[in-house]
Amino acid sequence: MHLLEVRNLTVSFDTSVGLFHAVKGIDLHVDAREVLAIVGESGSGKSVAMLSVMGLLPATATVTADSMEFDGRDLLTMSAAQRRKIIGRDVAMIFQEPMTSLNPCFTVGFQIEEVLRFHLGMGRTERRARAVELLRQVGIPEPEQRLHSFPHQMSGGQNQRVMIAMAIACSPKLLIADEPTTALDVTIQKQILDLLVHLQAEHGMGLIMITHNIGVVAETADRVVVQYKGRRMEEAGVLELFTAPKSPYTRALLAALPENATGDRLPTIAGFNPEDLVAQ
């Protein structure tokens, strides 16, 4: 049994000009202790697919799937209240912009402790001790003092560490990271990726990395799903993907990397119809 298994997921949005299908029949699964990368360009539906798992899509979205199971429990038929108990505790998510995903009005200590209070019902002193321990785990110096800091008093990299601390607060079984390093400098990106992979291995979590950055895929993933315009183009082990990409789209994507350039112009991606390329 997989930790998360989604079959034939479709997400459509009701817009003023009719239905827009953001995700069109995607299958994916992730196991415990596995790093899955979902890679795609903007509009590929990679974030929307994961937001539907988290139940964070707006009311205009319609989610259908043949099945959506997490840890043996059916997420589709579950009530909203039951789902809230799982989301944030057993499945946690980190977003792209650390500066906007934290609440500017509360200290980071308060925000971490809120998670512990809500999901684990911890008492005050216990919460405080656990928050300090979490900040230490994600590599923030002087955690006792840092608990009293507001998000604007810390750097982008440190705020992202706080987000990670909140996400792992309840020792989730699955962590979903949506472009966790896109807003950060490369040296900080390296630190955050190393931290995520380290925590994933240490806690035996499943980790889903949503990214458009091929380099991040190469540095972190065990297995990769390539998406394009709401369709799954390819699924492969990371080494297989880079050595023998099966889908023409993946091949074009890899060829467009500047580091793979051979001539004095880059090959460009054009004229793909995703419907013709769907991985079987």
Binding site: V186, K190, V217, A218, L239, F242, T243, E259
Partner: peptide, 15 residues
């Protein structure tokens, strides 16, 4: 050193 590397040897080494 911090720049992610997408070449096959680096991936092999990491795995």
């Amino acid at each position: 050193a911090a720049t992610p590397r997408a070449d096959v040897e680096s991936i092999r080494a990491r795995l």
